[in-house]
């Protein structure tokens, strides 16, 4: 099977190029395994990866034009020659490795932690199964970045628009019955950019490898803002 990968090394290359490798396909092979075969052929090829089962979120990349996690993407499902590129819209450090600083910065900006103001009980803070169910589809985010780097609004205003991953986490805490910082969270999202640059293009939903729905979460935040403003 033929795999064409994006190559760029800042010390030696003026501009990026695509390089094609021949890899033997095995039944059930995931793209990560194919990239590891390339790495065995050419140790200068760089990409991030770790768990191999879609929970660590290291190996997000753009494959045949769509963002995905290499370790849970079967090569059999991909049209050949497979085109593997780094995430779009992010500065490339080397080959498939991109600079995700801004993505993490936006995550930190939404106060991604539970805020509790009441005194803490000796035991757990009670939460009904129904309230706990509201966190499903939110807490599972692995911060791989597939969604935010597929979002045109994030490409255009990465320093102002929080992007789908961070906003999904903003809603994860707003939706948590234990959290006591709703007003501060909503106030911090005011303005034309942080939240409202989402134009419901829904690329994020299409690419999320965990099947999560940031667009819906953003909609919930907007609804809550509206309720609060009345």
């Amino acid at each position: 099977m033929k795999i064409s990968v994006y190559r760029y090394h800042p010390d030696t290359d003026d501009k990026p190029r695509m390089q094609t490798f021949e890899v033997e396909e095995r039944p059930g092979m995931m793209l990560r395994e194919a990239l590891l075969e390339i790495k065995a052929q050419d140790e200068t090829f760089a990409f991030r990866h770790s768990c191999g089962e879609g929970v660590c979120g290291s190996d997000g990349m753009n494959v045949n034009g769509k963002n995905c996690l290499a370790c849970v993407t079967p090569v059999a499902d991909l049209k050949q020659p497979i085109q593997v590129r780094p995430f779009p819209g992010r500065p490339v450090i080397r080959d498939l490795v991109v600079d995700m600083t801004q993505f993490y910065e936006q995550y930190r900006n939404v106060q991604p932690y539970l805020v509790r103001k009441d005194p803490l009980p000796e035991q757990e803070i009670p939460q009904s199964p129904a309230d706990r169910d509201k966190l499903d589809g939110l807490y599972e985010c692995i911060l791989c970045g597939c969604c935010s780097t597929a979002c045109p609004s994030f490409w255009w205003n990465p320093e102002k628009f929080h992007g789908p991953a961070a906003l999904l986490q903003a809603w994860r805490f707003l939706a948590d019955s234990r959290d006591q910082a709703t007003d501060e969270r909503l106030d911090a999202l005011e303005g034309p950019y942080k939240l409202f640059r989402c134009h419901t293009i829904m690329n994020c939903v299409e690419v999320c490898p965990k099947g999560l729905n940031p667009t819906k979460a953003i909609g919930h935040i907007k609804e809550l803002m509206l309720q609060k403003s009345i």
């Binding site: 509790r116 803490l120 757990e124 199964p129 309230d131 706990r132 805490f173 948590d176």
Partner: peptide
């Protein structure tokens, strides 16, 4: 739990 871990819950 107080720090925010979303443990599954009993009734």
């Amino acid at each position: 739990e107080h720090a925010g871990v979303p443990f599954s819950r009993l009734d």
